[in-house]
Amino acid sequence: MKSDTFHMSMLFDFYGELLTDKQRELFDLYYNEDMSLTEISEIAGITRQGVRDAIVRAESILRDTEDRLQLVRRYAGIQTQVEQIAQAAHLIVSANASGPRNYEIAKQADLILQTAAKLSE
């Protein structure tokens, strides 16, 4: 359940602007504010079923959009690759420090680590 909530939040971050204002509001309260359907229905002034229907429609829109565009999947893949690059750069730094130090290698490894950190922001 926790990973599904995270996944839905990621979809919302990428595609939330495609939802109506009301769908965005209800979805945000449910997934990001962790409110119950009953709590949301009291705030929104609609039935619990109305809240659920709006959230289910929003989920469907977000999932369908991801199925077509695959932006969240690509983003996750890029993040994994950036982490691998950073790990490799750390290994280079460690290997370079264990013997006679090559300052050009150290400088380039540092540049790689800085770039990886910026890409992870």
Rank of each mutant, 00 (worst) to 15 (best):
M1K: 02
T5R: 04
T5I: 14
T5K: 03
T5N: 12
F6S: 12
M8F: 09
L11C: 02
L11E: 05
F12R: 02
D13L: 05
F14G: 02
Y15I: 08
Y15P: 02
Y15K: 06
L18T: 01
L19M: 03
L19F: 02
K22L: 14
K22Y: 10
L26W: 00
D28H: 09
L29G: 07
L29P: 01
N32E: 14
E33M: 04
M35Q: 07
M35L: 13
L37M: 12
I40L: 04
S41K: 00
S41N: 03
S41D: 03
I46N: 09
R48I: 04
R48A: 14
G50R: 01
A54T: 02
A54E: 08
I55Y: 03
V56P: 01
S60W: 06
I61T: 09
I61D: 12
L62Y: 00
R63L: 13
T65D: 05
E66P: 00
E66D: 05
E66F: 02
L69F: 07
L69N: 07
Q70G: 11
Q70E: 15
Q70K: 06
R73D: 14
R74H: 09
Y75G: 11
Y75T: 11
G77E: 14
T80G: 12
Q81Y: 03
E83F: 02
Q84K: 03
Q87K: 09
A88P: 00
A88Y: 03
A89W: 01
I92N: 06
V93E: 15
V93K: 06
N96H: 07
A97S: 14
A97F: 04
A97R: 03
A97L: 10
A97M: 11
A97P: 00
S98A: 15
S98E: 14
G99H: 12
R101T: 15
A106Q: 11
A106G: 12
K107A: 15
K107L: 15
K107I: 11
D110W: 03
D110S: 14
D110C: 12
D110I: 05
A116T: 03
K118L: 15
K118F: 13
K118G: 15
S120G: 09
